[in-house]
């Protein structure tokens, strides 16, 4: 554990909490892509299956359980409890275009052709693109609430901090995992346009609005 990984994890946790609290307090999931949240639930489920087979640490188990439970809670709020506020007309990204290529790629490029390993690899590939339905929704409506922007910033920062963690581990521990690194770079790059708008607009108190 190093400072980059810890802040990355905390940033990830913060993002998930921001989203849950936002939906709960406003009793609305307007502006939130249910499809991205479904993909994240799929990502955590397929990645953390090792919960039942391998014990790593109390921290690890605790965080995995939080991520799984929070993602299902978010999906429940969007598709069940606050279904009436769900923006399904704008949430039209075709998720099969993300799920199927991620799955095929995980069959082709993995560390070991074993069920748990392929599901782990699939989750890494799918996570790298799982935010696309959300970014697509923001681009379709042309704007995002500030709280949604904070959520996206925290979620995007998490993988960026993991990249620093991997650079650190490469030098400090001679450890690296190309699958995670390449997917992490892709994931972080997808947020770059948003990061730019966040810094230039949201941090200056303006609403995130895309140029017409």
């Amino acid at each position: 554990m190093n400072i980059f990984r810890l802040t990355g994890d905390l940033s990830h946790l913060l993002a998930i909490i921001i989203l849950l609290v936002k939906i709960w307090k406003t009793r609305s999931c307007a502006g939130i892509s249910g499809k991205s949240q479904l993909l994240f639930a799929l990502v955590y489920t397929t990645r953390y299956l090792d919960l039942v087979s391998t014990y790593i640490s109390a921290y690890n188990t605790f965080m995995k359980l939080i991520f799984i439970c929070a993602s299902y809670a978010t999906v429940y709020l969007i598709y069940m409890k606050f279904k009436a506020t769900y923006d399904h007309n704008h949430d039209t990204f075709r998720v099969e275009f993300l799920i199927l290529p991620s799955f095929v790629l995980s069959l082709l490029i993995n560390h070991d052709f074993a069920v748990l390993e392929i599901l782990w690899t699939f989750s890494i590939y799918l996570e790298s693109v799982a935010i696309l339905p959300q970014l697509f929704l923001v681009s379709k409506t042309g704007e995002a609430e500030s709280i949604t922007s904070h959520y996206l910033f925290a979620l995007g920062s998490y993988r960026g901090l993991y990249l620093l963690n991997w650079i650190y581990r490469y030098y400090a521990e001679s450890h690296y995992d190309l699958i995670a690194i390449v997917a992490g770079v892709v994931q972080t790059v997808l947020y770059c346009d948003f990061f730019y708008l966040y810094v230039t607009k949201v941090l200056k108190g303006k609403k995130l609005q895309l140029p017409a």
Partner: peptide, 10 residues
């Protein structure tokens, strides 16, 4: 192996 170390990450 290298990838099992990455598994302790989230």
């Amino acid at each position: 192996t290298s990838h099992s170390q990455t598994k302790d990450e989230l």
